[in-house]
Design a protein around this nucleic acid. Sequence first.
DNA 1: GCCGCATATATCGCTGATCGGTATATGCTT
DNA 2: AAGCATATACCGATCAGCGATATATGCGGC
Lengths: 110, 110
Amino acid sequence: MREPTFLVLTALAEEPRHGYAVIEDVATMTGGRVRLRAGTLYAALDRLRAEGLIEVEREEVVQSRLRRYYRLTGAGERSLATETARLRSQATIAESRLRLRGTQFGGATA
Amino acid sequence: MREPTFLVLTALAEEPRHGYAVIEDVATMTGGRVRLRAGTLYAALDRLRAEGLIEVEREEVVQSRLRRYYRLTGAGERSLATETARLRSQATIAESRLRLRGTQFGGATA
DNA sequence: GCCGCATATATCGCTGATCGGTATATGCTT
DNA sequence: AAGCATATACCGATCAGCGATATATGCGGC
């Protein structure tokens, strides 16, 4: 799973959101670093729906604009949990190795 | 940065390794989940070298087979550190949201 | 009144990382 | 001699993501 997809699932993990709200939440989550493009977002939404990781919760019309709310399914929740564990594991390994590099000359600056 | 690329950098963060050793270390690191393909690995190595994140440390010939050892550069180390921080941050956010979902009905199983 | 911006979904072509397979070469094991 | 591990390299296909564009509406500023 690529980063944008993971972030979409994370956005929907908090509460059901419509597409545009997902874009905004992802931007907030990443401190503005990731600005999902429309092409990326709606393609991901379609794909995740086809895979059964998310589903349409409801549709609203606000100011004559459609809002389609998506919600994480049980499978989506499990998938996100698995993916999160993987990220954490990889981060831990990388951190440990980076730390060793920092100290491998004895840390003898004193 | 995609997962395979990140894992290549992590493999080289521990010590200089040649291509095949990277494939093995990545497999070990991920519990066998990620088996880097030759095409993925050598393409990534070339790309990372062009970007200055890794460099050739030395070349050996063992049993008339070439071994090209790669090492992380300073830029590569910084890049991996940045990427790791990002992974950890995203994992933390996702975990927190998943935890809330688990308890949002009162956690009243006692 | 109109321009630009934010909101909101949708589609299209392109790029580029990754994948799967294949090639080349050697030495060890069965 | 067949198969496997080691080791690098190339190639075509796939597919997620990117950038751009289209459509439509409401709002604020001028």
